[in-house]
Design a protein around this nucleic acid. Structure first.
Length: 369
RNA sequence: GCGAGUAUGGUGAAGGGGUUAACACGGCGGAUUGUGGUUCCGUUAUGCUAGGGUUCGAAUCCCUAUACUCGCC
């Protein structure tokens, strides 16, 4: 069975909705924690769920290399393999085209990679990406795309955007998993007309959902918000919209205001492992000396497991000593922070108070310490 | 008590007369947006045990003191 999106309430362009999947339903807007290698780093599935996450993300490229999609398939699919019974979305490996391959490695047929593990030569195609994802048996698969660098000249962006469309079609043609849904990805770089073109042409292919790709690649925030606006207005209202790779609190708010339903980002877990925590007064670095004797939680108002049971001084000690529990506790807090943010945004949509919510949030978040 | 050796930042240390004392760790601070898991970047000794001397110039050479290390009575 395919996913089904239910739009429950609109406030401006923002949407409050419900997404039905074979592994449960969740409300949107929603933040998806990233579990690249079939694990949200340092967390058990129970801990992830307790943060309120409705869906998590995993990665085709990484699981293709290790342990290999056939192993996951033999295990009974990704859910069984990693003991996570909630919805899972798999990225296509498209972002690894951006992060691992060089421009000259990208051809019409596919993308040449040097394995980041042993340096061996790899070749990933739109068809292979979809076949791997079919075997992984995630709830939502992503089209194989090219995430266009920023800045990119118009010719490059145009050619890449058209190629991504051809790749999307090729992926659809081999797609073969009735329990899985497939999302198309809008590209177009920084160019309004290419974004519009990409959106319209992608929608013609009739995917189960759509995402905005090619953002958060080094562009300034206004450019990013424009990229969202340029593509999103051509997307159908009865399908979910997913903004790929975006997870700074402010960007999530701006995305929701512009009609985004789903977000994913490595930020909460990555910065956690490096000792940073989101708070309503901005990001803090728990390694700072001023927290050495701070026996209060990361945030008094937070309802996460870390804040209810541990102090800044203790978490600082763990991080400084390289103890993995430090990363775990900060990851729990940061994921909970972003998911709570989407919960608050849902509430604000229901009450038509989104702009007031943004103003209030920014007043605190950007405040100088 | 006698003889020998060593003294450089929070730590381990480089430099053996000539511009702002290498490097590493630690400390302090910053970065991180579809994750190439102990990441990257910045900063951190106005001073080389103390005092005196030689020299245009001393962490580097000489003298004295102090501390530690090793050996011998």
């Amino acid at each position: 069975m395919k996913i089904k999106y239910e739009l429950l309430k609109k406030s401006g362009n923002a949407r409050y909705g419900l997404l039905h999947t074979n592994h449960g339903d969740f409300e949107t807007p929603m933040f998806m924690p990233v579990g690249t290698l079939a694990t949200v780093k340092t967390l058990t599935p129970e801990q992830v769920k307790n943060c309120g996450s409705g869906i998590i993300l995993s990665n085709t490229y990484h699981l293709w290399l290790r342990p290999g999609e056939d192993i996951v398939n033999k295990a009974g699919g990704l859910h069984k393999f990693m003991n996570y019974d909630g919805p899972i979305l798999t990225d296509s490996g498209g972002f690894q085209v951006f992060s691992l391959a060089k421009p000259k490695d990208i051809t019409e047929e596919g993308v040449k990679f040097k394995s980041h593990i042993d340096g061996s030569n790899l070749f990933l195609t739109p068809e292979l990406s979809i076949q791997i994802q079919n075997k992984l048996d995630s709830d939502i698969a992503m089209s194989f795309d090219e995430c266009i660098p920023y800045p990119a000249d118009y010719e490059y962006a145009k050619n890449s955007t058209e190629r991504t469309l051809r790749w999307a079609k090729r992926g659809q043609e081999v797609f073969n998993n009735p329990n899985q849904s497939l999302f198309g990805i809008v590209q177009g770089g920084e160019y309004t007309d290419l974004r519009e073109y990409s959106a319209k042409e992608t929608v013609k292919l009739n995917f189960d959902g759509y995402s905005i790709g090619g953002t958060s690649v080094g562009e300034d925030k206004d450019t990013m918000y424009k990229m969202i606006e340029d593509g999103i207005r051509f997307l159908p209202s009865d399908k979910p919209r997913y903004l790929m790779g975006v997870g700074e609190p402010v960007d999530i708010i701006e995305g929701v205001i512009r009609g985004i339903d789903m977000f994913d980002c490595v930020l909460p877990t990555r910065i956690a492992r490096h000792g940073n925590a989101f708070t309503h007064n901005g990001k803090i670095n728990i390694k700072n000396a001023k927290y050495k004797e701070d026996f209060t939680p990361l945030e008094d108002s937070c309802d996460c497991y870390a804040c209810k049971n541990y102090t800044k001084a203790y978490i600082r000690h763990l991080i400084i000593c390289g103890e993995s529990l430090g990363g775990t506790l900060l990851s729990i807090h940061n994921i909970r922070f972003l998911i709570k943010l989407t919960e608050d945004l849902r509430e604000a949509i229901k009450q038509d108070k989104l702009l007031e919510f943004r103003e209030e949030f920014l007043k605190n978040y950007l405040r100088d310490e």
